[in-house]
Design a protein around this nucleic acid. Sequence first.
DNA 1: CAGTTTAATGCAAATGATTATCAATGTCAA
DNA 2: TTGACATTGATAATCATTTGCATTAAACTG
Lengths: 127, 127
Amino acid sequence: MTPQRELIARTFFRNKGHVSAEDIYKQVQKRAPRIGFATTYRTMKLLSEAGVASLRSFGDGFSRYEPALRTDHHDHLICTQCGHIIEFEDDRIESLQKTVARKHGFRVTDHKLELYGICSHCRNTKK
Amino acid sequence: MTPQRELIARTFFRNKGHVSAEDIYKQVQKRAPRIGFATTYRTMKLLSEAGVASLRSFGDGFSRYEPALRTDHHDHLICTQCGHIIEFEDDRIESLQKTVARKHGFRVTDHKLELYGICSHCRNTKK
DNA sequence: CAGTTTAATGCAAATGATTATCAATGTCAA
DNA sequence: TTGACATTGATAATCATTTGCATTAAACTG
Ligand SMILES: [Zn+2]
Ligand SMILES: [Zn+2]
Ligand SMILES: [Zn+2]
Ligand SMILES: [Zn+2]
């Protein structure tokens, strides 16, 4: 554990999740301008390999990280206008997914459910 | 509508869907080696803008296209071992998604549900 | 037809997020 | 101190996709 890694990890956990590597890099830059993005990427990969961060890739070209509490699984509602992300969890959907997979002979190891749309805030300020 | 575009479109529709741009490019190459991949990409973008192809991005680094029949929506089961993709549709999941979105004040315009796992074929030949 | 405009092609170079390379620096135990 | 050994950070490489641009071809015009 080096000072660079510690700063990067701290910065990551200070966020609320769904942070891109560049986000973290820019935040880290303010405290320690000498840290390069290579170290940022490497550290985030380490964190996700260690299981404390999990990698998400939404539609846009970026990889996002969020803290992995391990216990809580959740899916995402994403506002295509302002980028706001809401997390949710629905046990009925989860179990229906398992049913569907079983029906097709799949053993599911992972899944991704993302609902894209317009959040209430953007809908109200729209017109 | 140019001959190049026609060949690319025909080639695309000859496939069963979930085709990468490179797949199409390579198939087109056999019939018309002079066609460049720029034209392939451009034409696929045109097709998806025209609504006859829809763009999917699964976890791997590739953009995939599939014919957009407009009437049928479906989600995907993806084997992480052999890459095989099964399409499915579950009305109960769909309606639960709408319920969840409504609960959070979202108006959903699109969604993505992908189940990753091991298909029955790969499970049987595994050991 | 000849001439002019316009769009489409295809090669090569650019893009942009991520990864690999590698010399320089730090760590630590013998 | 010496020598493994790991880590850093600047830079170059990667790789799917886009873009710039000169060339070709089609579509009008008369
Ligand atoms: Zn919004
Ligand atoms: Zn989340
Ligand atoms: Zn399989
Ligand atoms: Zn499909």
